[in-house]
Computed example of a mutant assay.
Amino acid sequence: MIQNRVNRDKREQLEYTPAFYRLGDAVQKQALIQLLEQQEDIQVFDELDIQLRELMKIQHPTRKLTTEEITELAAARLGNTPAEEYGVWVYFPWARRVVHIVDEQEFIELRTARNMQKITREERDQLATRKLGIIGLSVGQSIALTLVMERLCGELRLADFDALELSNMNRIRTGIYNLNVPKVVIAAREIAELDPFIKVKCYADGATDDNLSDFLTGDGKLDLLIEECDGIDIKIISRIKAKALQIPVVMEMNDRGMLDIERYDLQPDYPMMHGLIPDIDINTLKNLTNEEKVPILGPMVDMHNMSPRMKQSLAEIGKSITTWPQLASSVVLGGAMVADTVRRILLGQLTASGRYYVDFEQIIK
């Protein structure tokens, strides 16, 4: 009995796309009824009334509406449409939940109401057309979720080859039930549960020579690349391709709040990673040992100016620790820094390339 359940769950580990049911369509209504009859463990959440009432309040900001007025306006919005046919029912198969929400335009209006006017309606609609890509879903998960919470894009592409291990949970916000689930799938599910209307495409093999072109240009070119991977070869190859396509690149290094911006869209001849990437053949790079990569990686990540604790940690790799450490506080800071930078780049408010630091140990003493 238990093993059968485990095997079923294993088959479902790659699911991350929600299903939509609009009950004004008889076929979709029957499909949802059939789903609920066949899978009795599915939970159903219907708080449409609360959403409509909130919608009425935000659409009348100059009035102090009474409870009765809100009720009347919500009823008028429904009109002759049965409540169950209003909006859309969203099924999250990995969570066995169906949720009744207002449909896309009203959902976006509600989801972004408390962004106004820090992000204007026109800016919000402009950002909704943008396509972003993230390579690396440790630091990248915090970035992805912050981008989605602010609704800074309409499409996200996520690349990471790794599955969640318990030690990853010092910085990846998720539950222990997700152990051994691909990191891209964990992030994609969180995104869908925050905002099911944002398109997400997962590359569970990570960014590779074979899929990078599709990652950067498939179904439309990325507007911006966020590079957070560990592999030095992909760091370089992704920049070579992004530069050729004039796609800007943003990277956060998770130590001393170091942030890189490379505006290949505005400066096509800008040197990769500010000239810190050496002139080296990619095929040669792939065959280097970790020790041989250190002299190349050092300048790229500003090893000389790393925090004292990070420098000490690097000397302990292979001795007392297996890899370099990352802290949740730094990862969450990175998510905020990158999201703020990405928003300003996409809205034309930031044009600079360069390397910047938000070092708490220097700022707060």
Rank of each mutant, 00 (worst) to 15 (best):
V358M: 11
R11P: 04
K183W: 01
D279R: 14
L166T: 01
C229Y: 04
N254F: 04
M1F: 10
E47L: 08
S142V: 02
D233G: 05
R355A: 01
R22F: 01
G231C: 12
I226S: 00
V98S: 12
D25R: 10
I50S: 02
K221M: 06
V88Q: 14
K131M: 13
I345E: 09
A31M: 11
A95N: 13
D214F: 06
K64P: 06
M169R: 13
Q28F: 00
G231M: 06
T341C: 13
L259C: 01
D214R: 11
I172P: 02
R121S: 05
Q349M: 10
M253W: 13
C202G: 03
G348H: 09
R263N: 03
G335W: 06
A315I: 09
V44M: 06
R111I: 03
I321N: 12
I261M: 07
D233A: 07
Y86Q: 07
H60S: 15
R97P: 02
L52C: 07
M273I: 00
M310I: 06
V148C: 11
P93K: 11
G154I: 09
L194K: 12
L314I: 04
D9P: 02
N115A: 02
V342Y: 09
Q246F: 00
L166Y: 06
E292Q: 07
V294C: 04
A315F: 07
N4M: 14
P271R: 15
Y16I: 00
S313T: 10
A192S: 03
A76T: 15
K10V: 04
L23C: 02
P308G: 02
M258E: 09
L147C: 02
E109K: 08
Y86P: 05
P82Y: 05
M273K: 02
R5V: 05
G220H: 09
H100S: 04
Y203A: 00
L55D: 14
D233I: 01
A144S: 11
K293T: 02
C229I: 08
C229P: 14
Y86W: 09
D233W: 10
C153Q: 15
F161W: 12
D233F: 03
H60I: 09
H304D: 15
Q326H: 09
M169W: 03
E262T: 05
G206F: 00
M310L: 15
T322F: 10
N170L: 01
T81R: 14
I50K: 08
V88R: 05
V88D: 07
I236R: 01
N283A: 12
G87V: 03
T341K: 12
E227S: 03
